[in-house]
């Protein structure tokens, strides 16, 4: 009788352990999934840029395509530098070993706007027809973030992460 009770208790403990392991693996899976969001956004930006450039080439001609390519490149660089600036700021706050000076972080943040302004000004001077393409290209990160949001909703519903 005692042996039976002990076996039941052992089975119960084993089941609880399995459930805990399952919950832990589910949490780590979702953590891994959400930590890859920035990389997925980067890839989405590239894919969307190529597709939209092809569509712009067919529909509006090369002026608009060049403008969109420049705008897409600027927004990609802008997003990359934004990520680096936030990384530098987080390094400083959490006091990790790799520390950047405050001025470097601030200068890099301001330099982004300066570069965008310079490139937009150059485009306006060289080819005003490409301006709308440039403006459309600057919205590439928003489109990529929207794609990522849709993908995350799909994964959350389909896999329950």
């Amino acid at each position: 009788m005692q042996l039976l009770k002990r076996a039941e208790w052992l089975a119960l403990v084993r089941a609880e352990n399995l459930q805990m392991k399952d919950e832990q693996s589910s949490a780590s899976r979702s953590e891994t999934f959400y930590s890859g969001a920035l990389d997925r956004i980067r890839v989405s930006m590239i894919v969307l840029a190529v597709l939209t450039m092809l569509a712009a080439w067919v529909t509006y001609g090369w002026h608009m395509t060049v403008g969109f390519a420049v705008g897409g490149t600027v927004s990609y660089l802008n997003f990359y530098w934004l990520k680096r600036v936030v990384n530098g700021m987080a390094d400083r706050i959490t006091k990790t070993q790799r520390r950047e000076s405050v001025w470097a972080v601030v200068l890099r943040f301001l330099l982004r706007y300066f570069l965008i302004g310079m490139i937009a000004y150059a485009i306006v001077l060289v080819s005003p027809a490409s301006l709308y393409g440039l403006l459309a290209g600057l919205f590439l990160p928003v489109a990529a973030i929207a794609c990522e949001a849709g993908y995350e909703v799909y994964i959350a519903v389909a896999r329950g992460l």
Binding site: E31, Y34, S35, A37, L38, N78, F79, L82, K83, V86, N87, A90, T94, F139, P141, V142, I145
Partner: peptide, 18 residues
């Protein structure tokens, strides 16, 4: 909580800029 906060901050800043 750095990874989560950092991701939210980057996305938030990009959307605010837009």
């Amino acid at each position: 909580a750095r990874p989560g906060i950092q991701l939210a901050l980057i996305l938030g800043l990009a959307l605010i800029e837009s």
